[in-house]
């Protein structure tokens, strides 16, 4: 059976069916991401002082990923334009560039950005024990400077088994610079770059810790929203890449030879989805990396 209105427009809507379908789908996506962004904003506004990390993410890496996604939007629209001009070879190359951009974006996320967080440790100190860890927290210094208090000690956890073994009574942490030298004025400001842990070891009694985890969604509302939104966005990028790979394979050439306009319409619909996914990142980047 021939599916109607895949190329020609419907007389009542003036559009072909897939275009209406994709816009209805994108409307539901706006509501999905809109809800998540709203949750992020309200969680952040309601966070007590010192409980919301700022400047933790690597801005140069995030900027590079943003540039890659913008570039991929350019190549996908050029691929579609090439099909409209019946230049299959150019389409093939532009589509390949789009796929590569998507793959690079995902690789940076999954191989560099996320694993770095999985290897990082953070322990929130109980309010009554804050004084005991003044050498790592420097809260007298932050009070003098009118800065939010530091409640967490972070760094590289040397005895990772301490997280699961109740017989181990303390955490041994290769301290982050902010905890290794908390009174240093350079530590008063966020870095926006990856700063590796120092060689200085800090020992934290488990009894003094309110909660301690690696930088996972369980760590805080910040990381829960970070992993939820970037993870969901990453799944959308993956879906887009898979669709583009299908449209790039030889099977698309058969459709092109049979009906080039049909393939052009398919690429347009996939391109609309891809632009939406990139537009979401345009909001994710400043919200998580800069502000």
């Amino acid at each position: 059976m021939e599916i109607p209105y895949t190329i020609s427009t419907r007389p009542d809507t003036g559009l072909w069916n897939a275009k209406i379908g994709i816009w209805l789908f994108l409307a539901s996506e706006v509501m999905l991401f809109g809800g998540l962004f709203s949750a992020y904003v309200f969680l952040r506004l309601d966070a007590p002082p010192g409980m919301w990390p700022h400047g933790l993410l690597n801005v140069p890496v995030g900027t590079m990923n943003t540039a890659i996604l913008i570039m991929s939007s350019v190549t996908v629209v050029l691929a579609w334009a090439a099909l409209k001009m019946r230049k299959y070879r150019a389409y093939w190359w532009y589509m390949l560039a789009t796929i590569l951009c998507g793959v690079i974006f995902l690789t940076v996320k999954l191989v560099y950005e996320w694993p770095q967080k999985f290897e990082h440790f953070g322990g929130y100190i109980k309010p009554e024990a804050l004084e005991k860890y003044e050498q790592y927290l420097g809260n007298k210094h932050t009070a003098e400077k009118n800065l939010p208090p530091r409640l967490e000690i972070t760094g590289h956890l040397h005895n990772r088994e301490a997280l699961s073994n109740p017989n181990i009574k303390e955490y041994e942490v290769g301290l982050d610079p902010v905890n290794a030298d908390p009174a240093n004025p350079a530590m008063d400001r966020p870095h926006f770059l990856y700063v590796p842990p120092t060689e200085k070891i800090g020992k934290i009694d488990k009894a003094d810790v309110e909660r301690a985890t690696m930088f996972l969604p369980t760590h805080s509302a910040y990381f829960a929203s970070y992993f939820t939104i970037t993870g969901l966005h990453g799944l959308h990028v993956l879906a887009g890449v898979l669709v583009f790979i299908y449209m790039w394979l030889p099977v698309s050439k058969k459709l092109y030879q049979r009906n080039p306009e049909h393939l052009a319409n398919r690429v347009e619909v996939a391109g609309l989805f891809w632009h939406f996914v990139d537009l979401v990142w345009i909001f994710v980047f400043p919200l998580f990396y800069l502000l």
């Binding site: 939007s73 629209v77 391109g271 609309l272 632009h275 990139d278 537009l279 345009i282």
Partner: peptide, 15 residues
Amino acid sequence: LKGFHIVFIVFSTLL
């Protein structure tokens, strides 16, 4: 797609 692309470029420029 071309209309959405122009909107996207406007947002990218603002970013």
